[in-house]
């Protein structure tokens, strides 16, 4: 059999493309289907992603009318970030929302930081994505932890204090019990983001 094969004269039927006619046809068909899907559902997906950020903005910067939020692309040292400039219903500026992300204890943590108009004080913090340890680290998304950031100064580093060592002072955040690293990560992410982008918010 194998001898027969090897001695057989090469015909056009042995060509790879001819052999694969079905696959090529199916690939074309499937691509067409997927293009249709993308055209129909793509805009909905985009809108969903936008919505995920926008729904948080009133929590981050009080008195903001979501309809009047302006997206601004900031650039510095080759890095880019989309910041959201917020206005109230009368188009008076209310503040800024800045996305921030960095390494947490388990995985990347994505945050949104709310700042006042002069970018000198934090007005809020929400956690969008996190995979920290359930029961310990994932408490960073709880309000009791997040609200500590409200009112802290943006021009100096926020530091973490552990458990019982006195009450936190200005710009100090009380670490979550048993999740010092997660708490520290959130502070580091906020500090780094502010260091990089605060000057650019105008």
């Amino acid at each position: 059999m194998s001898e027969e094969n090897s001695t057989r004269k090469k015909s056009w039927k042995d060509n790879y493309l001819v052999q694969a006619w079905l696959i090529l046809l199916m690939a074309a068909l499937y691509s067409a289907v997927l293009i249709l899907v993308q055209l129909n559902w793509g805009p909905i997906i985009k809108e969903n992603q936008r919505q995920a950020t926008y729904s948080q903005i009133p929590i981050l910067v009080p008195n903001t009318d979501v309809a009047n939020v302006v997206e601004k692309t900031l650039e510095k040292d080759g890095k880019k970030v989309v910041a959201y400039q917020c206005f109230d219903a009368q188009k008076n500026p209310t503040g800024w929302v800045l996305p921030a992300s960095g390494q947490g204890f388990a995985d990347v943590v994505d945050l949104l930081v709310g700042l006042d108009t002069s970018a000198s004080k934090l007005t809020g913090l929400v956690v969008i994505n996190q995979k920290e340890t359930p029961g310990l680290g994932n408490l960073i998304k709880e309000e009791s932890f997040r609200k500590q950031f409200i009112g802290t100064a943006a021009d100096q580093d926020i530091t973490v204090v552990k458990g019982r060592d006195g009450s936190p002072e200005k710009n100090e955040i009380r670490a979550l019990t048993g999740a010092t690293i997660s708490s520290q990560s959130v502070c580091d992410i906020v500090n780094n983001t502010l260091k990089t982008w605060r000057e650019e918010l105008k």
Partner: peptide, 13 residues
């Protein structure tokens, strides 16, 4: 799978 993924992203984000 791509269709299913798009469906979830669009309607069950």
């Amino acid at each position: 799978v791509t269709i299913a993924d798009y469906f979830l992203q669009a309607f069950m984000p």
